[in-house]
Nucleic acid binder design. Sequence first.
DNA 1: CGGAGTGTTAGTCG
DNA 2: CCGACTAACACTCC
Length: 286
Amino acid sequence: MPELPEVETIRRDLSRVLIGRRVTQFSVTRPKLLKSPRREFRRFLVGATITKVARRAKQLVFRLSSGYSLLIHLKMTGQLVWCSRQGALRVGGHPIAGVTGVPNRYTYILLALSDGAHLYFNDVRQFGYWRLVATPELSYEFRTLGPEPFSKGFTAARFQVELARRARTSIKAALLDQSVVAGIGNIYADESLFVARLRPTRRVGSLRGTEVAALWRAVRAVLRRAVAARGTSFSSYRDGLGRQGTYWNMRQAYGRAGEPCLRCHRPLTRTVVAGRGTTYCAKCQR
DNA sequence: CGGAGTGTTAGTCG
DNA sequence: CCGACTAACACTCC
């Protein structure tokens, strides 16, 4: 589930409760979710203080006082649940029907923190992972990722150049390609293409300059709105206020196949592009 | 019950 | 290099 807006929401909320805390305990019941040797977690994670909670593309990056960084990828169904000593819950990730509370049958990794809180990693499908990387090597680690959509590096001109290299592919596949721009997944690809009025199947090479510029603006507008809404689709942070991500109610294309286009009222079309379910308006999107 | 579909992405194969 | 497809896994929906 989590694309840039969801991971960014999790990052912001976790950063408020994790920074300055020391990891006192680490336990794993599904070792294959660790993409680094377990001894490295014991050496560089246990005993280290979390100094920063960052994000790159769809991954969380916990900077540690040990000189290492913990990378967490939630993939489709990964979930991070922070639980204070008193038991207040903050949740990030995919909701699990009928499963409440932590730990539960999908909890595979657990951190205990110096303030008595715990951080649980749940993952129904077990695609997510944790790995440790020496902090100076992060830029190498991320060398294949394109620019963050809100960084100075992501200019319309750069977008144009990256797309030009992929002239023969569909524009939807290009948006999903993390080396073009980092953080877009299936939901926000469909949403951005709807806003830009571009058909997902369009070959990149057929796009005019004005269309590329419209898409560049659409990507940023859609992501900005989604971050402001705390993301889509997952029952966000069950804090005392019970707030949830609200982009779902603002979506214009994703998951609306057969429902009326919000511009022209024609039913939206559903198809498969780049191997992913895709919804668009056959009239408005050209 | 069987089969298709699900927010990701790395890898293979033609 | 490109793009289609698959696997990793578990669950929901029809």
